[in-house]
């Protein structure tokens, strides 16, 4: 079957006659060819003026350009209940809203890859072990799409004695992530200066045993750190939405900077996202453990952020 030219696809989109799969391709084309964006605007202007008897409007996309520029600086929204997935076959989009917004815990558990690693330090008590068994289920949502800022996330809540998974309001999560990012950016310059005694580019290879200085922080310790990183500061902040005090540990190798936030929290679930930092993208990973939320963010690969986050262990003694 002959491929429909993007110009015709645009016209079909105006009439609600374009499939979801084609929409994705068309948006890519528009990104490459600004003339298509212009065409979309011109056709709507003509429709507004001629067929809808609208008021004459200037041939300008200044407003849309301004909106687009503003939104480029803002976190991407993601609707709860909408599974993030790439468009499938070239079929007309069905209203996903009508699809079930959540899986049953059993389905989720079977569908997810269970993380095999459990921190040994937390196996000391039965309560901890029980918690960690549950924690295995609170792994990142599988609906991760490369290049997108937000990741669908859920939280587990107890309802009438049974654990059920539900979607977390992404606006709350974004707000909280933004608060962390602000604190991280505030400390970034000083942290880099203090960490510059050791300057090694971050790498996923060669994780070193942490120093004693790094290990001991308010009842929590780090299992390991990327080579060359050292702790440069520990602060305490009030973070909006959390309502309480958060411990902020800052680590740097003189180039990249990590922030680790630990706070009391009852909100379970995993958050994983990329945000626009002051100078470069910042990866954030956050999870719940033993009544605390542990959040790590930094200008380093997501894999590294996650490794650091999962190395945080409760101090037994």
């Amino acid at each position: 079957m002959q491929k429909q030219p993007p110009e015709e696809q645009l016209s079909a989109l105006m009439d609600g006659e374009l499939s979801a799969a084609d929409l994705d391709q068309l948006l890519n084309e528009i990104e490459q060819r600004p003339a298509l964006r212009e065409q979309w605007s011109n056709h709507h202007r003509a429709r507004h003026l001629l067929f809808e008897q609208g008021e004459p409007a200037p041939q300008s996309n200044q407003l849309a350009d301004r909106v687009s520029a503003t939104l480029a600086q803002q976190p991407t929204i993601l609707a709860p209940g909408l599974p993030l997935r790439e468009p499938s076959d070239a079929t007309t989009l069905k209203p996903d809203i009508d699809e079930p917004a959540m899986d049953t815990p059993a389905t989720v558990a079977s569908a997810r890859k269970i993380r095999p690693w459990i921190p040994m330090a937390l196996a000391a008590s039965l309560a901890s072990v029980s918690f960690l068994l549950l924690q295995q289920q609170w792994q990142p949502s599988p609906y991760v799409v490369a290049g997108r800022e937000a990741v669908a996330a859920t939280e587990w809540v107890e309802v009438e004695g049974a654990w059920v998974e539900r979607w977390i309001n992404p606006l709350d999560r974004q707000e909280r992530a933004r608060s962390y990012l602000v604190r991280h950016d505030e400390q970034r310059t000083v942290a880099r200066q203090r960490g510059s005694l050791v300057s090694t580019a971050p790498s996923l290879e060669g994780f070193a045993e942490p120093t004693a200085e790094v290990k001991r922080v308010v009842g929590w310790r780090l299992g390991w750190l990327p080579e060359g990183f050292r702790e440069v500061e520990t602060l305490r902040h009030q973070i909006p939405l959390s309502g309480g005090e958060v411990t902020h540990r800052i680590l740097s190798n003189g180039d990249a900077v990590f922030s680790i936030f630990i706070e009391h929290s009852s909100q379970k679930g995993v958050d994983e996202r990329q945000m626009d930092g002051k100078r470069q993208p910042v990866n954030l990973y956050s999870y719940f453990a033993l009544g605390h939320r542990i959040t790590v963010l930094g200008e380093v690969p997501m894999e590294m952020v996650k490794k650091v986050a999962h190395s945080v262990e409760a101090e037994s003694g």
Binding site: L13, A20, L23, D24, L27, I30, E31, R37, W40, S41, H44, R45, H48, G54, E55, A57, N61, L63, A64, V67, S68, L71, A72, T76, I77, L78, A79, L82, L84, R85, L93, P95, D96, I97, V145, R148, E149, A150
Partner: peptide
């Protein structure tokens, strides 16, 4: 739906469509 799935480009088309109105 495309915007709700995290695609800002789709919102740009909605803005272009309705900006004059």
């Amino acid at each position: 739906l495309q915007v709700q799935k995290g695609d800002k480009r789709a919102f740009d088309l909605l803005v272009l469509k309705y900006q004059h109105k």
